[in-house]
Amino acid sequence: MERARLKRASLFALREPIPRRVALAVTVGVFATLAVAWVVLSYGGFVRPLFLPTPTAVLERAVFLYREEILVRDIWISNVRVFSGFLMAMVVAIPLGMLAGNLPIFAAAVNPFMGFIRYMPVPAFIPLLVLYAGIDEAPKILLIFIGTAVQMTIMVGDVTRRVQPELIRAAMVLGADSREIFRKVIWRGSLPGIVDVMRINLGFAWTYLVVAELVAASEGMGFRILRSQRFLQTDTIFLYILLIGLLGILFDFAFRQLHRFAFPWIRERVRG
């Protein structure tokens, strides 16, 4: 009996793991509640279809746009834009963040500058980007790049700075030079953190999509949402927002799997 009481209490114990089944049930419960609310409110006629389309309407939209060969095309082009900008940001932010996090001279060069641009509203760059980069893919990709690269650099810097000084001292005593310490200690030690930073920043990149597709786009998920607003096609808006959410869950899952399989040495810690 004592045991049962403890068990019930432990579902709300700080930082105590809860059974997998319970966690899954809670997660599914949240989505199910939202789905039920949607069904009841829309089919029940409590909210006008203009504000809340029915699931049927959204599905029909999906089928229609798929048949018209719009849906897949939109998803594809938006993914290309987001990932191009995101990959460019990675290429810049990872080395820069590592240097800024560990070499004071780079910190002096990079950190104040990043602080300077960090608070600037990204959409404010649109007129300049159009002026410099035209109206093709370039300005859209650049916008996503600007939106993510700055935060990413700062976060990578933080993560790499957190590699324990003992490990660096140990490597030095074992004869490692600065380059080897960067490669074999700081890089290896902060890699899991860097993957986490990427996971978080991919989310940021997607949030800039609609802004990016404000720029003279004629296709893409963000563009379709904006245009649907003009034609009051709430069902299309719902469809695309839900699709972006689903993509998010998918990418998050992929990153978590990568983490699990690439860094077995972390997982063991929990057990040991």
Partner: peptide, 19 residues
């Protein structure tokens, strides 16, 4: 400077966790 002629053991854990 550090060299292979000296080995060191620290108080806190200084093994590389990923190796």
């Amino acid at each position: 400077e550090p060299g292979a002629d000296r080995g060191m053991v620290f108080q806190s854990d200084s093994l590389f966790p990923w190796l």
